[in-house]
Amino acid sequence: MKLNKASLFALIAVLELASDTEKQLSATDIAQKHGISTHHLAKIMRNLTYAGLVQAVRGAGGGYRFSGNVRRTTLLDVIQLFETLESELDVPNWGNNSDPIIGELQSITSEIDNLTKAVLDTITLATALKNTRIRAELKANQASPGRVIT
């Protein structure tokens, strides 16, 4: 599976903002922190706002704030704002091709797509953030082995 850039950037932005729901960050802040295109992210933030996952805060010190439910929003909910995750075989007349070999290949890619979606649809933002924190603590602990993780 290869996520398109819009999905990936959206996931990064949503997870960044959802890690602290009080936090307000501009698209530039998020883009600089994660080394991604500000221009591209600005467009994505508009889509996320329209979907109700983030809220634009106007005025000095404004930016974006997470406005969804971290325990009920899944990675798939975010990704599907930008792509369908349906594989397409690069063959003529995709969708109504009667060639049985193509039909079998379609069936296989559909099974893979369903598995992919099933995984992404059960990882909530809360779970992804929890695992992110564990990963960060492990990394910090490896860097300074004397530190105790509480």
Binding site: T74, A118, D121, T122, I123, T124, A126, T127, K130
Partner: peptide, 9 residues
Amino acid sequence: KLLLSFFRG
């Protein structure tokens, strides 16, 4: 989805 998310969590 609810139970799967629970176990994932």
